[in-house]
């Protein structure tokens, strides 16, 4: 039995979210078509230096979506709406997609497929090394985001997907490191990421304290509570919640 709310998520919210996530990509694609094959698609254009603009749009979109992905759990707790978790996978996969597009823009238009220059950058430039590391992490998370992998990895899935915090931190660091002088934006990203991670640590700490108080004679280190999907009537298995 699928509730009306579930249907709304499946047929309205998820497709809408998909569309919203694809806006930056659609913009760039339209602009690139206008530039290269002379179409007249309605797109704001990429300015005098399209390569740099593309790097910026894709990179920012990846960071933005990573932060939005990390907002899902707090929002669920705040609103008590467990269905929100069903949007998280899509957000995460889009974040990876933009990180990949950012990298491909760097490889192709920016470096002109000069592999020697790219390898040199990866080895010599720490901010590129950390950006690439973050991309590899997101790749692992995107691959294992399917239901099949969730089943196969079981409880390890959750541990693995905690890498998203590391990837976000590296992504913000990557951005911060290559800004020339004005650090306002990277600072904002860092502040948001810290808040989102801090909230989780705070909750863990609080839960651990509560558990210790409730069962003083039990083992001092309480195992993290096994996550149970809050809505068992869903057709799709819901990703276990990360807190």
């Amino acid at each position: 039995m699928i509730s009306q709310a579930d249907q709304r998520y499946r047929f309205v919210y998820k497709p809408l979210l998909f569309l919203a996530c694809s806006v930056p990509l659609a913009w760039v694609l339209a602009a690139v078509c206008n530039l290269t094959i002379g179409t007249h698609l309605p797109a704001p254009g990429l300015g005098v230096d399209p390569v740099r603009r593309m790097l910026g749009i894709f990179g920012h979109s990846a960071l933005n979506l990573l932060l939005v992905t990390l907002c899902v759990s707090p929002l669920r707790v705040l609103t008590g709406n467990a269905r929100l978790l069903r949007l998280r996978r899509m957000l995460g996969v889009w974040a990876f997609t933009y990180a990949l597009l950012h990298f491909l823009t760097y490889v192709g238009p920016f470096q002109g497929f000069s592999w020697s220059a790219i390898v040199k950058d990866l080895v010599k430039r720490p901010y590129i090394t950390i950006g690439f590391t973050a991309l590899l992490m997101l790749l692992a998370l995107a691959i294992t985001s399917t239901n099949g992998w969730m089943r196969r990895l079981r409880r390890h899935w959750q541990s693995l997907h905690r890498l998203v915090y590391v990837a976000t931190a590296l992504g913000v660091w990557h951005y911060w490191w290559q800004v020339k002088k004005d650090i306002r934006e990277p600072l904002l990203y860092a502040a948001l990421a810290t808040m989102l991670l801090g909230w989780r640590l705070w909750r863990r700490q609080r839960d651990a304290l509560r558990a210790a108080r409730a069962a003083p004679r039990a083992a001092p280190r309480a195992a993290p509570p096994a996550s149970v999907p809050a809505t068992s009537n869903s057709a799709l298995p819901t990703a276990p919640e990360r807190t």
Binding site: L35, T36, V48, P109, Q111, G112, S114
Partner: peptide
């Protein structure tokens, strides 16, 4: 260096 104005797929 990247020469501005040479388009998306110009070599450096």
């Amino acid at each position: 260096e990247r020469r501005i104005g040479e388009g998306l797929f110009a070599p450096r």
